[in-house]
């Protein structure tokens, strides 16, 4: 049963639990790999996570001269292989979302690997496990389809990923989901 990371941007409260939890994944050397932004802090408290979308044809891997960025059979775009990464930082520039981070001391790129130690066995990644708001969820294809039907939005932009960097393994629901909800009374 294929499961995907699904992001419901409207739900984010900016608690950054996803970042704290990221450090708890066995392979992550206690460093977090994603981002949460204040969208417009002078105006309101809207926040949004910026997670690796695990592109099907990832710009980071394409840009790597050393083939250090491997794609797992689950579709997860992995962190750079330590033995192959030459520290050129091409990937940090190539990624349209600025996901890969760079460790200057180790001269090594590191990025979200979707907690591959967990997700390869169908266990949710740490971020989606702890997310208190269901901004980050770990869903089956059927569950994602149901969401798509439930939140039938006017703007047709149900997933952002199509419009951005080709197809992605992660699915994103843009802010505004509630526009499509029929009220109970």
């Amino acid at each position: 049963m294929k499961q995907r990371l699904y992001i419901e941007l409207e739900n984010c409260i900016g608690c950054r639990s996803c970042l704290a939890a990221c450090t708890q994944c066995g392979g992550h050397e206690e460093r977090n790999r994603n981002y949460v932004y204040d969208v417009n802090p002078f105006v309101n408290r809207q926040t949004m996570p910026l997670m690796c979308l695990h592109c099907v044809n990832p710009a980071c891997a394409r840009s790597c001269p050393a083939q250090a960025i491997q794609i797992h059979e689950t579709g997860a775009v992995l962190s750079a292989l330590v033995e192959k990464c030459i520290g050129c930082q091409n990937c940090t520039i190539a990624c349209p979302y600025g996901i890969p981070k760079f460790d200057t001391e180790q001269n090594l790129m590191y990025k979200c690997d979707l907690c591959i130690d967990r997700t390869k066995d169908g266990i949710p990644p740490m971020c989606a496990s702890v997310c208190p708001t269901n901004t980050l969820q770990w869903l089956t294809e059927e569950e994602i389809e149901m969401k798509q039907k439930q939140f039938n939005l006017d703007n047709g932009k149900w997933t952002a990923s199509m419009k951005l960097e080709g197809e992605t393994n992660v699915r994103v629901n843009l802010p505004g989901i509630l526009q499509g909800v029929t009220k109970l009374f």
């Binding site: 739900n11 608690c15 208190p132 708001t133 269901n134 439930q150 989901i177 909800v181 009220k183 109970l184």
Partner: peptide, 17 residues
């Protein structure tokens, strides 16, 4: 009480107030 929030948002997702 952040971990109450997924239940609160679910009320709105169901069309509640």
């Amino acid at each position: 009480h952040p971990t109450s929030m997924f239940r609160v948002w679910a009320v709105q997702e169901r069309g509640g107030y």
